[in-house]
Amino acid sequence: MKKKQILLINDMAGYGKVATAAMLPILSYMGHPTYNLPTALVSNTLDYGKFNILETTEYIKGVFPVWRELGFSFDAIATGFMASETQARIIAAYCREQAENGTVVYVDPIMGDEGKLYNGVTDEAIKSMREMVSVAHLVFPNYTEACYLTDSQYDAAGVTAEGARRLLDSLLKLGTKSALITSIRVDGQPSVVGYNHVNGEYFTQPYTEIPVHFPGTGDIFSAVLIGYLLGGKELKPSTRKAMDVVYKLIDLNKDNTDKNRGIPLEKYLDVL
């Protein structure tokens, strides 16, 4: 089967395996021709507490006309961190245009975690991320992001199975065809919940937490998930595979001294 071409629209860290730096090696290893458009250049993972960031909106404004003129197209686009509301609007318009020509759009609405927005994420940014969700074939926020996108109340204790389904339905109302919610406690059990529009199935995939923190694990999850979806696998088994890979990689690296740089993926690509 011919491998699918995918464009990653996300930030690029100079030091650390997060965002594009984490996703590109995984998707390439899985055989998909992978291209990238950085939304921002970041000196290092934010977990170090000090960083330098360069927003690339002006650069992006000049890229899309060139790509249109050259006739470039992609089978899929995966979006992540948006550096500004203006940038999100430009990228959403491009994704909508490409989707009309058959491109599948995956959206990771990176905005916050553990009930809080990341520093610098504004109400306008939430609105612009909703616009990204409106053009998505599949969106996969974490529990915090799902609550902000849908104006739902965040509860640190999690939700019931019925509450998880309501939250998924609220995401679908924003325009996405299918949806996942990661890092959500369902009846006390850490889980990923989902809805697959292809077969109308709601599902819950429980997992066991390893009590260590690595930046970039969400990006690893995204890349593995997308890699299997592009290979023709269904959403539920692709989700389980991505969860299992993340668990194994965390387990293999849980004793690393400097966790802030993320997981050194190149050593462990055979886990895929």
Rank of each mutant, 00 (worst) to 15 (best):
G200E: 13
F221I: 13
G231F: 08
L180R: 02
G231N: 12
P190K: 06
E209V: 00
G175E: 13
L180Q: 02
L235I: 08
R185D: 14
H213N: 02
D187P: 09
N196I: 00
N196T: 02
L230T: 15
S178P: 09
L174K: 14
A179Q: 01
Q189D: 15
H197M: 13
V186T: 08
T182K: 11
T182I: 05
Y195S: 02
D169W: 11
G194C: 04
L172Q: 14
H213L: 01
S178W: 03
G175H: 12
T217R: 03
A223F: 07
G175S: 09
G194F: 00
L225E: 04
V224A: 04
D219G: 11
E201T: 07
A223K: 02
L180V: 01
D169Q: 15
S178D: 05
V186M: 02
T217D: 04
S178F: 05
I226N: 03
L235P: 06
L180K: 01
L171G: 00
D219H: 09
F214A: 02
I210G: 08
T204N: 11
G227P: 11
P211R: 00
D219V: 15
I184G: 00
P215R: 13
I184T: 07
E209I: 01
H197E: 13
I184W: 01
S222D: 02
L225R: 03
S170R: 11
A223Q: 05
D187A: 13
V198M: 10
L168D: 12
G232D: 14
K177F: 14
K236F: 01
I181R: 03
T182S: 13
N199L: 08
L172M: 14
K177H: 13
L168Q: 12
H213V: 00
S183A: 11
V193Y: 05
G231Q: 09
Y207N: 05
H197G: 06
T204S: 10
L172V: 15
E234Q: 15
A223W: 05
K233F: 09
L180T: 02
V224N: 03
I181S: 06
L229C: 10
I184H: 00
G218H: 07
G194Q: 03
G194R: 00
E201Y: 04
A223I: 07
K236V: 05
T208P: 07
L225D: 04
N196H: 00
E234D: 15
T217G: 07
L168I: 15
G218D: 07
P190L: 03
L172G: 12
I181W: 01
L168V: 13
L172T: 12
G175Y: 14
K236P: 06
Y195M: 01
S222M: 03
G227L: 08
E234I: 14
K236G: 03
H197S: 15
T217F: 02
